[in-house]
């Protein structure tokens, strides 16, 4: 890589400001992103919740971490969509023919994704509070929770970058997020894995959602997180590295 452009941070600021404007001018996307996870949360707490044995007093407390991940899963579909629109509209070409630090074009979207998904997650947490969610976590634990969520968002965002840049249609750009939204169902997000048939259980316990959910759940309950947090971070970092490499490859071919 050549020396970092001296305008990197200026350009970055402009790109970030641009896509943040998109977020604030279409706040409905925040609602759209949070509404499905909230609906699922309501459904599970008030319909199925009574019949689910989690060993915790309050099912919302158990459920919330998985719902947070689901929210991020549906939020990144918009990242892919916004990138797709930029590619199609030719605005990428305009930027690329200008004397700017090229990578900032992508990084602007990536940073925005972290902020906008953070806002969506906050909305979900507010609703959970209304539903009786309580946490004994302190500032340190909450910071750790948001740290994990940010790294998770970053990982999914780089996958979204690949999808958005490689897609041929706007629908195609967002389609990759469905399996990701579904992933928490086959994890310990909704119910403990003990009652699952062994094949499903092996999958559930060894996919990234479970350690992330467990780590967040223990942090929020002010319990020791053990090894889960490291497994969770390993997963996220591995996904970031692989997705970033592929995303850059696709980006350079544009």
């Amino acid at each position: 890589m050549k020396s970092i452009n001296r305008y990197f941070f200026t350009d970055m600021g402009v790109m970030f400001g641009r896509s943040m404007r998109h977020i604030f001018r279409s706040m409905d996307t925040i609602i759209t992103v949070s509404i499905t996870p909230i609906a699922i949360m309501l459904l599970f707490v008030y319909v199925f919740g009574g019949a689910i044995e989690t060993g915790t007093e309050n099912y919302v407390d158990y459920l919330l971490p998985g719902i947070m991940l689901m929210t991020i899963g549906s939020g990144i579909a918009y990242v892919a969509y916004r990138l797709f629109t930029d590619k199609k509209s030719g605005i990428f070409e305009r930027f690329h023919s200008m004397p700017i630090a090229r990578s900032t074009v992508l990084w602007g979207h990536v940073l925005t994704s972290i902020i906008s998904n953070g806002i969506s997650v906050l909305v979900v947490i507010l609703v959970a509070l209304l539903m009786g969610f309580r946490s004994s976590a302190g500032i340190l634990e909450w910071s750790a929770v948001f740290g994990i969520l940010s790294v998770f968002t970053l990982a999914l965002t780089w996958i979204a970058v690949i999808a958005g840049l490689a897609a041929k249609t706007p629908d195609g750009a967002g389609a990759f997020s469905y399996p990701i939204i579904f992933l928490p169902f086959i994890s310990s997000a909704f119910v403990p894995t003990d009652t699952m048939p062994s094949a499903v259980r092996v999958f559930a316990e060894n996919q990234p959602v479970t350690p992330i959910v467990e780590a967040i759940r223990n942090l929020l309950a002010n319990q020791p997180v053990g090894n889960d947090i490291w497994v969770a971070l390993d997963w996220c970092i591995a996904i970031i590295v692989v997705a970033y490499i592929f995303a850059m490859r696709v980006y350079k071919k544009l």
Partner: peptide
């Protein structure tokens, strides 16, 4: 890139 500018075939503007 310092001395050129490109107006592509489709209006490359931020519509938002």
């Amino acid at each position: 890139r310092d001395s050129i500018s490109l107006t592509g075939q489709f209006a490359a503007i931020d519509e938002v």
